[in-house]
Write a protein that binds this DNA or RNA. Sequence first.
RNA 1: GGUCUCGUGGCCGAGUGGCUAGGCGGUGGUCUGCAAAACCAUUUACAGCGGUUCGAAUCCGCUCGAGACCUCCA
Length: 489
Amino acid sequence: MNTELHIYNTLSRKKELFEPLNPPFVGMYVCGPTAYGDAHLGHARPAITFDLIFRYLQHLGYKVRYIRNITDVGHLVNDADEGEDKIAKKAKSEQLEPMEVVQYYSDRYHKNMEQLNVKKPSIEPRASGHIIEQIEMIKKILDNGFGYEVNGSLYFDVEKYNKKHHYGKLSGRKIEDLVTNTRELEGQDEKRNSYDFALWKKAQPEHIMRWPSPWSDGFPGWHMECSAMGTKYLGEHFDIHGGGMDLLFPHHESEIAQSVAANGIEPVKYWLHNNMITLNGQKMGKSLGNAVSLEKFFTGENDLLEQAYSPMTIRFFILQAHYRSTLDFSNEALQSAEKGLKKLFKTFETLNKLIPSDHSTVNIKKLNEKCYKALNDDFNSPVLIAHLFDAVRIINSINDKKESVTAEDLELLKNMFKIFILDILGLEEESSKDQNDLSESLINTILRIRQNAKENKDYATSDKIREELTKLNIQIKDTKEGAIWSYDN
RNA sequence: GGUCUCGUGGCCGAGUGGCUAGGCGGUGGUCUGCAAAACCAUUUACAGCGGUUCGAAUCCGCUCGAGACCUCCA
């Protein structure tokens, strides 16, 4: 039962039985963030999706090596910029060493991931730390005749590659379509064909991120880092490669081509892609200017947000949709997720109070099996959550003496909750509110009651309240504007 | 324009040939000093049109609508 995991492979566009290449080991590579800005809701989706997958594979007993890179070289800021490095641009504008920018945003990313309870990957390599590996891989591609050099820059010869292999097999594109669908740019292009892509780019004099190579001082092309680092840590052929659907083409397509060109074998057995998060039906992305940072979600400081949404609300919201569906953001949807999550956690308390009886009126074993069935069907977390809410209803009914379970079933129920909610979905209870906020509003509530008593000339009660608060080192002062209070330390 | 994906009830979101998804909200009830919580019941569905089929939200075709990718760069 637990072993029949099926996952949707973008390569075949079908659900396939998951069979690792070298069980019990599983290698998984996921495209991580570019460290040049704060993480937004769109970044949370792949992180949480592959965290779920990581956690479930581990739960099934696999020894998973999970690689999630940080891209820290050669990103453009947006379309308007002429070939300038995203990180370098930021560095220049803020008078920083590029690595300072990378460090700053990596730290912030890690903090957000921790808040979302996303487990750390096994290895988190950086592109800048693997320049040698990338150069070595480019050399292999050249040796095998799939690259060409122009003025110190190297490009991948897609047409030549496509004669022996299929460029476009992952994204379902045909090279003829690429020809007709790419418009010609002015002569500045060094590439033989518009669909060729850079393996290595010669740095312009103003570029501050540059490394020596046999061809020029420059930087690696976009797709190289994932091919090189994936190969280095997981081997030439590994189990799972993941990322957002937006990376399907050309990034992942080109990764396949590079690996095949260099190593002669298909790099990845299962390709997994999560869908986008939309806002008013449109993809959420930095370049579109509609991306709300995770930090803003947690504090609520954004015009689009009616309130703050906790990291666990965000996590639950994302897990309530299947990872291959688009998920539309709205305040209403997040608020209902918040309530649902609260209900789920409240049930933990009820569960611990339950008293077993000598027979069960509900089939807990079957429910448990259904939960596994949901996850085994391409990590269907929304269906899993639906089953867990069935369990919630059952638990409350037992508490109301309308249903009953044996001690054995109760144990299973407790175990289910722990395994699915805490371990696999990775949800955790959040301390209801900031402690300070809570005590502050508590005191204000008490003072309002005292004010009422005073207005009713019930001075016995109002004095009693002041006395009790004083004992707690909370000093009350009655002023013309009303009572004020402070900690009396 | 090319390629692909999608269109489910007030909102979000599963399902993919016949059997209640689920959450949030609404309504009625049980409980309750009142409320909350909980439980029970209940409400509104499968974009439109046509076809296949004993039977379609689910398959096929068309129409309408929405989105993603398709230059440089990561």
